[in-house]
């Protein structure tokens, strides 16, 4: 029983609720803890991520705990909870927004960080980084380089300037370390 986290709640603060409300997710406070979300969650049945608990923590305003927790990233955004919630809480959208807040505070997983760099550099999460992929395209009678940002450098530049404009590069610190090609088997 030693690994159970306990939190002292001396004051319920409304920061998270306020943030969610301002971002348009007012219904998050309607959660009645019925558990239908956790009941259908494909992640919860194999990880420590419990959707219902997350919503409770949000209602109680345990901001730092929620945003720093790795479990927030175990959701595969399948949207089942959002579909089934009897109170109409847009659960998945709330989780995605919380992820935004977490990234703002610097909480991002390593491989995701690498993906951001890839996106910034090439305009794609999964780019053509080996010759075999071009050859594979040609095998199926397609042009070796697809007509995406790969082929049109101006398009690539457009994406980059947009990423700078929204300050995505600052947010995800894409200038941080050398871009190593992340195969990841893909």
């Amino acid at each position: 029983m030693e690994n159970i986290k306990t939190s002292r709640i001396t004051k319920i603060n409304d920061d998270l609720s306020d943030l969610l409300r301002d971002a348009g997710y007012l219904e998050a406070s309607s959660c009645i803890q019925c558990g239908t979300c956790s009941g259908g969650c494909p992640s919860g049945r194999r990880t420590a991520f419990k959707t219902r608990t997350l919503m409770k923590k949000v209602q109680l305003g345990l901001t730092e705990e929620v945003l720093s927790d790795k479990e927030l990233w175990f959701c595969s955004t399948c949207y089942k909870c959002l579909e089934r919630c009897p109170r109409g809480v847009p659960v998945t959208d709330v989780i995605i927004y919380l992820r935004n807040l977490a990234v703002q505070r610097g909480y991002i997983q390593g491989p995701h960080h690498a993906l951001c760099k890839m996106f910034y550099k090439t305009g794609h999460g999964v780019p053509i980084n080996e010759e075999k992929w071009s050859k594979l395209r040609e095998h199926y009678k397609l042009k070796g380089i697809p007509p995406t940002t790969h082929k049109f450098p101006e398009a690539n530049k457009e994406v980059q300037s947009l990423l700078k404009s929204t300050r995505f590069d600052e947010l995800t610190k894409v200038g941080d370390y050398d871009l190593k090609d992340e195969e990841g088997g893909e």
Partner: peptide, 17 residues
Amino acid sequence: EGASCCPAPGVFRGFDI
């Protein structure tokens, strides 16, 4: 012509909407 990653809803939307 000139399309980029959509951007992928699972990752990039979670970083910055």
